[in-house]
């Protein structure tokens, strides 16, 4: 008998432990499920943590309304397969209610997810929101704790984080505050794909190579949709592309790729020269744009 775990098994054991901590320590947790690859792994980890029982929390999607249609189909199907409750709150609705305010000329709705999420947390009195963020995604995330406290305004204070020592998480909160928990903190993009491969998890088709109309903008291929207006000089091309990360369709760049299997994707990432967030226009605005959004209460 070999008493050693592979790195994927060790990461899995840690993530299951974190999910069970949330279930044990919070009254009203929720798991944020977007249908993206990270949250797909989270659902499998939740199955591993709690089956044969049902999940001790509902799933929730903050829907920008600017979606790849494939993603929404997938999201609903996966929640139904699992027999778990799915809550959807939309940016559209939050704008109508005056909770979220688009600034003139702002086409992406990623920023508007923040007030929508905070309103949903308040509506359901959630005390902990489980997210799929990873520390390898971005520099501000690299410094965030696994259990990350948000004040009454949903804000993250990077200078005043609780030390996380051993596996002893301090999950105590005061009324009005809530916690964000990130079970995939120590996973990398490649770990996620290796896990999808090992667990044979279904993923939305847009992660695989497909023929799509795209337009070149700010150094990346943006998908053509109703939400994109061509600027002078831009022309529509039809290419074999796939997405590496999924956000608001108006700012999610596609990469040219022939990858049609998870194995192909793993090989592609292993050789990749650009980080996955490099295909997100919203992160490119400034050196600290993720930090700024996190401070305001972004995932």
């Amino acid at each position: 008998m070999n008493y050693r775990l592979s790195h994927i098994d060790a990461l899995e054991a840690e993530s299951i432990y974190i999910l069970r901590e949330v279930a044990a320590e919070f009254q009203r947790p929720v798991l944020l499920f977007s249908g993206g690859k990270d949250s797909i792994c989270m659902l499998r980890l939740a199955e591993k943590a709690f089956r044969p029982a049902k999940f001790p929390f509902p799933l929730m999607h903050i829907d920008t309304g600017h979606n790849f249609p494939e993603l929404i189909d997938f999201r609903d199907r996966r929640a139904a397969q699992l027999g778990e409750k799915l809550i959807v709150r939309t940016v559209e609705d939050a704008i109508a209610k005056g909770i979220a305010r688009p600034t003139p000329g702002e086409s992406s709705r990623n920023r508007l997810q923040t007030p929508t999420l905070l309103a949903a947390i308040e509506e359901f009195k959630f005390d902990c929101a489980i997210g799929g963020a990873r520390r390898d995604e971005e520099k501000a995330r690299a410094k965030e704790r696994i259990f990350s406290l948000r004040d009454a305004f949903g804000q993250w204070d990077p200078k005043n984080q609780r030390p996380e020592i051993w596996n002893l998480f301090n999950t105590r909160i005061n009324p009005g505050e809530h916690m964000r928990a990130f079970p995939l903190s120590n996973w990398t993009e490649l770990d996620v794909w290796q896990y999808i491969d090992r667990e044979k998890l279904e993923i939305p088709s847009i992660y695989f190579s497909h023929r799509r109309q795209v337009v070149r903008r700010d150094g990346q291929w943006l998908p053509v949709s109703d939400l994109i207006t061509l600027k002078p000089g831009e022309e529509i091309r039809e290419l074999d592309v796939r997405v590496r990360t999924i956000g608001d369709i108006s700012c999610t760049g596609c990469v040219e790729s022939p990858a049609t299997t998870v194995q192909d994707i793993i090989a592609e990432i292993a050789a990749a020269k650009v980080t996955e967030r490099g295909s997100r226009a919203d992160d490119k605005r400034s050196e600290t744009s993720m930090e700024d959004r996190k401070r305001e209460g972004y995932f």
């Binding site: 520390r135 390898d136 971005e138 520099k139 501000a140 690299a142 410094k143 990077p158 200078k159 984080q161 903190s185 120590n186 990398t188 490649l190 050196e287 600290t288 930090e291």
Partner: peptide, 23 residues
């Protein structure tokens, strides 16, 4: 590469524990 937060870049110091991954 490792000093990620705004105050750190401005002051040229590292504020908090940062996690990095390589393989």
């Amino acid at each position: 590469l490792t000093d990620g937060l705004r105050a750190e870049r401005e002051q040229g110091i590292t504020i908090d524990v940062a996690y990095r991954y390589f393989a």
